[in-house]
Structures are given as C-alpha cells and as structure tokens.
Design a protein around this nucleic acid. Structure first.
Ligand SMILES: [Zn+2]
Ligand SMILES: [Zn+2]
Ligand SMILES: [Zn+2]
Ligand SMILES: [Zn+2]
Lengths: 160, 160
DNA sequence: TGATGTAATGTAACGTTATAACGTGTCAAT
DNA sequence: ATTGACACGTTATAACGTTACATTACATCA
C-alpha cells in the first residue's frame, strides 16, 4: 500500500478504449451495437481477464433480462474480429486490447497472483518464431504467446 | 500423395516414447501404472492433439468398463507433471512430448488443416520473452507459445 | 503376519465453457 | 413493399473440467 507507481486514471482509460472502438467501427463500417458496447464496457470495467459467463451474469443483472451464452460469445467474436479484445487461452477469458486497431501479434504477461495482464509487443518475438517456423517449412497465420509469472506489484507484496 | 518426405516409422516412434516414459518414471521413482500407460499410449497412437474425452471414450471402448473424466484428467496431470505430455491450450488437447525429460519451454507449430503439431525448441524465444518481461519488472514462471498455420504437407496439398 | 500409512483409482455428482439449430427483429437498398 | 444482410433471441446440447468422498493397491514396519 506504500507506493502507487501508476495512478492509472481508470475512468479515462475506459472511455479512451470505448472511443477507440467507436472510431474503429465507424471506419470499417462495422456496427457497434448497444450489446457489443456493453460487452466491451464490461470487459474494460475490471481491466483484467473476464470470463464469458461473468459478462453474461453482469449483463443480466444490469437490466433483469437474462442473456444467453451465445449472445455474449457472438459479441466477443465481433470484438475479437475487430481487434478490440483478445482471448487469453490459458484462462478461457477475454481482455480489452489497449492498442486496438493495430493488427498486432501480442505477448501477454499474466500475473498468477493478481491476474492482471500486461500486453506487450516485441516484434523480435514474432520474427524469431516466423523464422523458426519457416525453417520447418511451416507458414504462420497467427500466434498465441502467454507468459505466466508475477507482476512487479505482487513481487513487492511478497517482499521476498 | 506424390511424395512421402518422412516415412515416419510410427510403431517405432510410439515404442520409443513409451520406453522413454518408462525410463523417466523409473529414474524418478514415479509409478507408471497401467492406466497412465494406456493414456500415454492413446495420446501417442494418433500422434496428434488428443482431447481428454477422446481418450476417455477409447479407454472405455477397450474394455467395456467406462472411465470417468476425472480418471483421465488425473492421468494427464501425472503425465504433464513428468514432462511426458504437453497441453495445447488453444485446442484443449494433449500431445506427447518427443523430448520428454528435458524440462523445456516448447514452441508448438499447429497445422490448422491437418491438426498435426511440431514441437520445436528455440532458446532464443524464451530468452527474448524473459528479457521483455524483465523490462516490465515481471518475473516469468512458465510460457505458452502456440503458432497456428499450415504445415508443409498441407501447403503442398493446396498446391497454391 | 497383520496393522498402518500413502498413493492410485473408482464413483457420482456437479460446474464451467462453448456451439448448434432455428426463429425473429431491424434496417437499408432497390 | 420486397428483398437481403445482419444482429439478436430462444432452446437445447456439446465439450471440457473439477469436487468430494469411497475404495483399492502397495509398501513399510511392528
Ligand atoms: Zn484501466
Ligand atoms: Zn500481480
Ligand atoms: Zn509417431
Ligand atoms: Zn497440415
């Protein structure tokens, strides 16, 4: 509790993300419907990996009317297709992309303690993998790189 | 169908894997029980990613007596703990490790067409990731790197 | 040998994650 | 108004994974 390295104005962080989404959808002619907006908002709200059923429950809580799984998954598919969220395969969860729009190969640093995720983008990683794949005659379409470990805060908290 | 680049003597490939498993378990004092052996055999049999329930059904078919999911998962946990199989998170499936014993950070090349998987091990990838993580003050415990794309055979088959 | 402790497996129920199949509403272009 | 594309609703089911507790196998030692 001593230091707060990054104040992280989360309200701004969320509204930025929504504005970016709006912009991207407008550009591509994609329909950023209320449902999709709500799902994206919900994902950004906690700023950490969020399960589909977690979203589902929250949407249902918001306005009584229960939501079906498929509804959420469809929205998630849309958001992923437009690069607005990523799926974390090791967690069966989704997280907002802080660099939406840039068609990127991301690397995720997932804290095993607090579950927070940092998305970094080192082109060298993708290049190395592409080269390795090419050596095998393998042509790459997409990558999934998830690194588990401990974030700085949680290391400090464990003050080991 | 024209060329067969690698004849791949699969019988030998499987029996090698089983022998390695035997050896590793003997060394570490782990019990390579009949159940665990059957699960590992089943995974190697197809030489491609195999779902837990696929294994489950085959075990049940073998000797009438149905097998419960938990039984399979327990065996899989054991096999993973001893580095004999890997889990492919993007497929919810398991595959035998061709380099069992070496505690390694593997990279998986997964063919989206034929589902075959090549396991490669380029230390540079892990090093780069570790450095990237360190830059963020993040300490790495494990990694998961899965590359989707097309294997040489399937590229040839599509003769694009 | 039989008692004892530990690891492995059996059994039943349950929980979580994801998709299939088909119907209805919405909206814009012709 | 008709058409067609797309989003969303509804229901059911598939696929994946775990909890809790009972039983059995196996080694160790009194
Ligand atoms: Zn934020
Ligand atoms: Zn943390
Ligand atoms: Zn083989
Ligand atoms: Zn292939």
């Amino acid at each position: 509790m001593a230091s707060r390295p990054k104040p992280h104005d989360h309200a701004a962080c969320v509204s930025d993300a929504m504005a970016r989404a709006e912009h991207i959808c407008a550009e591509t002619g994609a329909r950023f419907t209320p449902l999709r907006r709500r799902v994206l908002e919900r994902i950004w709200a906690g700023h950490k990996p969020t399960g589909a059923y977690e979203i589902l429950e929250d949407l249902g809580r918001d306005d009584g009317k229960p939501v079906a799984p498929v509804t959420v998954y469809r929205a998630l598919d849309f958001l992923m297709a437009h690069g607005l969220v990523h799926r974390l395969n090791s967690l069966n969860a989704f997280i907002g992309c802080p660099r939406a729009g840039a068609g990127h190969e991301a690397v995720f640093l997932i804290c095993e303690d607090c579950k927070r995720v940092a998305e970094i983008d080192d082109p060298a990683v993708g290049e190395t993998l592409a080269r390795d794949a090419a050596d095998q005659g393998f042509s790459v379409s997409t990558q999934m790189i998830e690194v588990m470990g401990r974030c700085p805060d949680c290391q400090a908290a464990a003050h080991g």
